[in-house]
């Protein structure tokens, strides 16, 4: 069950993880992009976090909308519109609700995945966040329960690690062609952390993936 206070706690927890992982995300992006994924995400989620704590509401849709608009105006790059799209889809799905169950969470995640595909025009296998969002959404669809959320977080982490072997087809890494192989996609890692923290807020006790030792 996701409540408004759990949602706010999720954004807070995700922001904290981004703070921790900013150097790693920048480093991954440096290897195959322009080196600012961690910096941009941290800036955006700090802004979103501040905005949420200053505008209390019991509407999950309104909270998601606030996060989306803040990310849109503070992240930039490709991550801004993409992560904003995730929260815009959450907002549409959860409008007027103060809490949602695993089924409604699943539906929102699936909608977010579809939104990412439309906005980013990427397909599975192109070394983008779709490579995480797609299997995670599918896992949840097959098992739209709390345990499905845990499984989705595990699947997301494995998928993010798996992007190391992929050649980029979208985003700045695509210009490297074959040379993009060997580095994990930073947007996929930040997405996997998203699923990890999301599951942790709802279920609790989720083990934190040791990203720095796993992907650097």
């Amino acid at each position: 069950m996701l409540t408004t206070s759990a949602f706010v706690a999720f954004i807070q927890a995700y922001t904290n993880r981004l703070d921790e992982l900013q150097p790693l995300l920048d480093q991954l992006d440096n290897q195959i992009g322009d080196g600012d994924h961690g910096t941009n995400m941290t800036r955006g989620f700090h802004a979103a976090n501040e905005r949420l704590t200053s505008t209390p509401t019991d509407d999950l849709g309104a909270l998601s909308q606030t996060v989306a608009m803040t990310l849109l105006s503070s992240v930039g790059g490709a991550s801004g519109p993409l992560y904003a799209t995730v929260f815009l889809r959450f907002s549409a799905q959860w409008k007027g609700q103060s809490q949602v169950d695993a089924k409604e969470i699943t539906e929102a995640i699936v909608q977010a995945r579809d939104g990412l595909v439309v906005r980013g025009k990427a397909h599975v296998g192109e070394k983008t966040m779709i490579d995480v969002w797609s299997p995670a959404a599918q896992t949840l669809q097959e098992n739209p329960t709390v345990s499905g959320l845990l499984k989705a977080a595990t699947v997301a982490a494995e998928a993010a690690v798996g992007t190391r072997e992929l050649v980029a087809g979208k985003g700045r890494a695509a210009y490297l062609g074959e040379r993009s192989r060997g580095t994990c996609d930073p947007g996929s890692v930040s997405s996997a952390v998203f699923f990890e923290e999301f599951a942790n807020v709802i279920v609790g006790g989720v083990e934190k993936t040791p990203w720095p030792t796993l992907v650097s």
Partner: peptide
């Protein structure tokens, strides 16, 4: 103008 090497945002 966006942030360093980062596209400007839609609102700007």
């Amino acid at each position: 103008a966006g942030e360093m090497f980062t596209s400007p945002t839609p609102d700007q």
